[in-house]
Simulated scan of single mutants.
Amino acid sequence: MAFVVVLSWSRRIFLRFYLNQRMDNFLRGHVAAFTQWNALPRILLYDNLKSAVLERQGDTIRFHPTLLELSAHYRFEPRPCAPYRGNEKGRVERAIRYIRDNFFAGRQWTDLDVLNAEAKLWCETTASERRCPEDPDMSVAEAFEQERPALIGLPDNPFPTHERVEARIGKTPYVRFDLNDYSVPHTAVRRGATVTATLKTVAVLQDGLEIARHQRTFGKGEQIENPEHVAALIERKRQARHHRGQDRLAKAAPSSVAFLSKAIERGHRLGSTITELENLLDQYHASELEAALAEVLDHDAAHPQSVQQVLERRRETRNEPPPLAMPLTRHEQLRQLSMRPASLAGYAHFTDTSADKEEQNDDNS
């Protein structure tokens, strides 16, 4: 979308491009024009676009309420063009034709920022150096300097043009805004949030405090992540996995609590130690693991290999075969499932054939 403002007497042009025609960009164009000129006209004449005029019946006009807020903030009067009165907006239409012929013709650009930078330079040089239609003896820039005293000064604070929407963060640490997902800390899930956005950034707030800030993207279906959010989530999952493993070992082999404490004191990694003990628990019975842990602790050792050596020695003493590794799920609910074995009594007559053979021999004789 091209946002164009033309001053009525000097013909000074403001030109800015946006990706769409939404209300937030309509407001941004006003604020950018007023800021660049450091002033604004007392009356702004609008074509009958929906961003300005919601409804019109005869001379009765219903302006967009957000436009009225903007006009009240900057103290200008909005006026709509009369229908079918081309002369009322002729200055703007001639300026658009001038932009098309003198700015766009043969021009190439790589992105929107480059295009807007070139548009600003063109407005301040080529467009301002042309002759003023009201007084051909002056340039547009000279006419603008004479017109400036009749313009309104800017208020102390600009009108807020950032987008603001209420959102809900679900089970995953992402908040959706403008068809894209932005990461948030994992502690913010399952709660409401407020998303504020400019053309450059997207900020997420909870309870009035900013919890995340990202560079804005205008794609679709993209996932924008802060590496710190991802790292914190991975660490949280790792800790939760360790806690689940510790709880399981403590229930199956209570001596594992003291064993893990000693292992940490001696600098062993907690995660890998828990994983090795869980593997031993899967291969051997819980009572065997408890006995091996108790023996290792009596010898003041705290390494999974020591536990495995004790388990192997106890197995060989009983002349039992090596345990087969059975990969089991780590999901606790699936581990607790039990199935009642089906009765095989009904299949006995398929295997017990001796009585049938005797009866068959008697019949043949």
Rank of each mutant, 00 (worst) to 15 (best):
A2S: 14
V92A: 09
G29N: 06
V165M: 12
F103P: 05
P327E: 05
K251N: 12
R213L: 08
W9P: 02
R42Q: 12
R28Y: 00
L112A: 05
F76Y: 09
A348K: 10
S343V: 10
L70M: 06
R241G: 02
E163F: 07
F26T: 03
S256K: 06
R330W: 12
I264D: 10
N157P: 01
I96P: 05
Q246C: 07
F177Y: 09
L7F: 06
A193K: 05
H285A: 13
E320V: 10
E358R: 15
R330M: 10
S287M: 12
V296G: 06
A193C: 12
V310I: 13
M326L: 12
V53I: 11
E278G: 10
Y18D: 01
A286G: 03
K50C: 10
A232C: 03
R97N: 14
L324A: 13
C81A: 14
I99F: 14
S139Q: 11
T275G: 06
Y84L: 06
L209F: 07
G271Q: 05
T161C: 13
M138D: 00
F103D: 02
N20Q: 07
A231R: 15
N364S: 10
G192L: 11
I99K: 05
G219A: 10
D111L: 08
I152N: 14
V6H: 03
R22G: 13
C81E: 05
A119R: 06
L199R: 14
